[in-house]
Simulated assay, not measured.
Amino acid sequence: MRSDQAPAGRPVGRGAKVRAAVHAAALAELVDVGYAALTIENVAQRAGVHKTTVYRRWKDRESLLTDALAEHMALDVPVPDTGAIEGDLRALAHSLVRAYTSPTGQALLAAMFTGAAHLPEIAAARRHVFDDRLVRAAPVVTRAVERGELPAGTDAAELLKTLAAPIYLRLLMTGDPVDGTTADRAALVTLAAARAGALKAP
């Protein structure tokens, strides 16, 4: 048995504790064995719960991973409120870099963009995760418009996609280093484009 796997039969609390334990186990399995070999049975064993407990909450591994991925990104890339749009964008970009250069982040990218990524259920999970991130982070842009830092009509989704684009380009395409400099540059370029009115809703 793996060192981080729960002993068989060890009880886990109900509700939020069960959800957190199963989420953590699902992501740990994803890192250890990859999407193709991930099973509900192994996730349940690692979480210290019976597999029927998992199936009561998630119908299959795809719905479990979708939920776990969205929650993981919400925690790993929190929505900042520094009081200024430049600080918020820098914080978001740095969190994104940290999240996706970690071992767990690398495994998540592999699951969402390589290997089984062509499967409809993985494409749907990927869309859900990114849509969830856009909705959660949209207040950063709303607050900036209200403070007069960005033009009225700035499209929050387009701004956030512009911020993430150079980071994902390096992670998924070019293999160039992804670090704090990458994050800072992404924030500054995005801010300049938004202030110039290039990211307004059509």
Rank of each mutant, 00 (worst) to 15 (best):
L150V: 00
L150A: 07
L150R: 06
L150Y: 12
L150S: 12
P151I: 03
P151S: 07
P151R: 04
P151C: 00
P151T: 03
P151Y: 01
A152Y: 06
A152D: 07
A152K: 08
A152E: 14
G153E: 05
G153S: 10
G153R: 05
G153V: 03
G153K: 06
G153P: 05
T154R: 00
T154H: 01
T154K: 02
T154I: 02
T154N: 02
T154D: 00
T154A: 01
D155A: 00
D155M: 00
D155Y: 00
D155Q: 02
D155N: 02
D155V: 00
D155E: 04
A156P: 07
A156I: 04
A156V: 02
A156Y: 02
A156W: 00
A156K: 01
A157T: 11
A157I: 07
A157P: 10
E158S: 12
E158I: 07
E158N: 04
L159N: 06
L159K: 10
L159T: 11
L160G: 00
L160K: 02
L160E: 01
L160S: 03
K161P: 05
K161H: 11
K161C: 08
K161N: 13
T162Q: 06
T162L: 10
L163Q: 09
L163I: 05
L163T: 10
A164Q: 07
A164R: 11
A164H: 08
A165L: 08
A165K: 08
A165E: 10
P166A: 03
P166H: 09
P166G: 10
I167E: 01
I167R: 09
I167V: 11
Y168L: 15
Y168E: 13
Y168N: 06
L169G: 12
L169H: 14
R170W: 15
R170P: 11
R170T: 13
R170C: 12
L171A: 05
L171H: 12
L171N: 11
L172Y: 14
L172F: 09
L172A: 11
M173Q: 14
M173H: 15
M173N: 13
M173V: 15
M173P: 05
T174F: 06
T174G: 03
T174Q: 05
G175N: 03
G175E: 01
G175H: 01
D176P: 02
D176I: 07
D176V: 08
D176Q: 15
P177C: 14
P177I: 07
P177K: 14
V178F: 07
V178I: 04
D179P: 12
D179E: 06
D179G: 12
G180I: 12
G180S: 01
G180M: 06
G180H: 09
G180W: 08
T181Q: 14
T181W: 12
T181S: 15
T181H: 15
T181L: 14
T182Q: 02
T182Y: 02
T182P: 03
T182N: 00
T182K: 04
A183H: 06
